[in-house]
Simulated scan of single mutants.
Amino acid sequence: MEKIRELISLLESGVEDYDAQLKVMQAERLKYIRLSMTNGFGTEEGDSKESWLLHLKQLEDALTLRRDSIRQAIQQTAEDIQKEENA
C-alpha cells in the first residue's frame, strides 16, 4: 500500500507540472501563430522564425519526456506490486 501512496504523490506533482508546462506551450504556440500572421519574426537569433520553431520543439519534447516519465513510474510501480504479491 505504501508504494501506491508514493505513486499517488508522485503522480499528483507530475501531473501538476505537466499541466503547467502544457499551458506554457499553448501560450507560446499562440505567440508563434500571431507572429506568423503578422510576419512579426525578427532576424536575430532569439526572435527568428527558426528560433521559434526550435523553442516550440523543445517545449514539445519536454512534455513528451515528462509524460513518458509518468507512464514509466506507473508501469514500474505496477511491476513492483505484482512482484510483492507473487513473493
Rank of each mutant, 00 (worst) to 15 (best):
K31H: 12
E45W: 10
Q26W: 11
R5W: 02
Q72G: 08
W52F: 13
I8G: 05
T64R: 15
R71Y: 10
S48M: 03
G46R: 03
Q72W: 13
G14R: 12
G40S: 04
L59R: 09
Q76C: 08
D47T: 12
A78M: 06
Y32C: 03
Q21F: 04
E45T: 07
G46V: 04
K57H: 15
D80W: 11
S51A: 15
K83P: 01
M25P: 02
L11Y: 04
G14P: 03
L30G: 10
R5Y: 03
L10G: 00
E44D: 06
Y32E: 05
K83L: 06
E16D: 12
Q21I: 02
L65T: 12
A62G: 12
S51L: 07
Q58K: 08
M37W: 01
A78T: 10
Q26M: 09
L53M: 13
S69T: 13
S9N: 13
T64D: 09
T38M: 03
N86G: 00
K57T: 09
R29H: 11
I8W: 09
Y18V: 06
R5M: 00
E28S: 09
I8L: 13
T43N: 13
R5P: 01
V24D: 12
R71F: 10
Q21N: 08
R29E: 11
Q76P: 08
L22S: 10
G46Y: 04
S69N: 14
L10M: 06
Q72H: 15
M25Q: 10
E84Y: 00
I81S: 00
Q58H: 12
K31P: 02
G46L: 06
H55S: 09
L22M: 11
K83A: 05
I4C: 03
T43A: 15
L7A: 06
E12D: 13
S13F: 03
T64Y: 09
D68R: 15
D68H: 15
F41L: 01
I74P: 05
L54P: 07
S69L: 10
K3Q: 10
I70T: 03
M25H: 08
L53A: 07
L30Y: 10
A78L: 04
M37E: 06
S36R: 11
R66L: 08
I8E: 07
L54F: 06
A62Y: 13
E50H: 05
T77C: 08
I4Y: 09
Q72N: 11
R34N: 07
D68L: 11
W52H: 10
D19V: 07
S51K: 06
A87W: 09
M1R: 14
E84W: 05
Q82E: 13
I70W: 06
Q76V: 12
S36G: 04
E79G: 13
L56V: 04
K83E: 12
K31R: 14
E79Q: 15
